[in-house]
Computed example of a mutant assay.
Amino acid sequence: MTAMISVLVIDDHNMLRGALCEILDRESDITVVGQAADGRSGIAQAEQLYPNVVILDVEIPGEDVVTTLLRLRAVSPDTRVLIVSVHQDMGLIRELVECGIAGYLHKSARRETLLSAIRTADSDGEVIVYVSWQEDRRSADGNRDGSPDQALTARELEVVERVASAMSNRQIANALGITEGTVKRHLRNIFQKLGAVSRLDMVNRATAAKLIVPYPPE
C-alpha cells in the first residue's frame, strides 16, 4: 500500500486555500493534515504535525517568506517546502532554492503539475521551478495534457545562466562539479523544454521568459 503524503497548506486567501485542500484530499495518496492563513500559525502546526510537505504562499501576513521558510525548517527539518506564488522573481526564487525549498510553482500551474510537484517533493527529488510562461507556451502549442515535464529544474537554470555568460560545456562542468556528459544532457532537456534550436536561441528564450537576467554589454 502506498504511504500517504501529509500536506500542510499555508495561504491567506481562504477561498483558494479551501479549494486547494479539496483538490488534494481527492487524491488517494495525499492527505491535508492542516491549513493556516499566516506564517506564525502555520509554523505552530508544522511543529505539531510534522507534515511531509508544506505548501507555502510567498505573500502571507507576518514575517517575510524567507524567514518563515527558515523557521519551518527549524521546527520540522524533514518537511519539504513547496512555494506557490503569482510572481516569478528569479532573484527571489534563487534565494529560496538556496534556503532549501523543494520547488517553486506559479499559481497558473495546472492541477497535474501541482500534484506531480508534491509527489516529487516528498520523494526528495530535484528542485522544480515552474513559471507562468511555460503554461502559455503549452497552450499555444496545443499541448493541453498538463504534463509537468516542461518545468526547468534549478540545475537547468544554472546551466542556462552559464551558457549566457559564454562558458563552454567543459567550463560549465567544472563550475558546477558535474561531467560534460551531464551538461550535454541538461542542454538537451533545456532545448526541448524551451523549444530552442541553438545555444543563442536558448539564451534569448530564457531571457525573454525572465528566467535569467541578461548580462549588460561591456
Rank of each mutant, 00 (worst) to 15 (best):
M1T: 09
A3H: 08
M4A: 09
S6D: 08
S6C: 00
D12I: 03
N14F: 00
L16Q: 09
E22P: 00
L24K: 07
E27W: 06
T31W: 04
V33I: 15
G34A: 12
A36G: 11
A37K: 12
D38T: 13
A44D: 14
Q45M: 15
Q45S: 13
Q45N: 09
E47C: 10
E47Y: 09
Q48L: 15
I55T: 15
G62V: 10
D64I: 06
V65R: 06
T68C: 14
L72Q: 11
A74D: 15
V86K: 01
G91Y: 00
G91L: 06
L92F: 01
R94E: 13
C99V: 00
C99L: 00
A102W: 05
G103S: 02
L105A: 04
A109I: 02
A109R: 01
L114D: 03
L114F: 12
L114H: 04
I118Q: 07
A121W: 05
D122Y: 10
G125F: 08
W133K: 02
D136L: 02
R137P: 00
R137C: 09
N143P: 00
D145H: 11
G146T: 06
A151Y: 01
A151I: 06
L152W: 08
T153S: 14
R155G: 00
E156T: 03
V159Y: 04
V163I: 15
S168A: 09
S168P: 06
S168C: 09
R170E: 13
R170W: 04
I178D: 07
I178N: 11
T182L: 12
K184S: 13
H186A: 11
R188N: 15
F191D: 10
G195D: 08
L200E: 12
A206H: 02
T207W: 01
T207D: 04
L211T: 03
V213G: 00
P216D: 04
P217E: 12
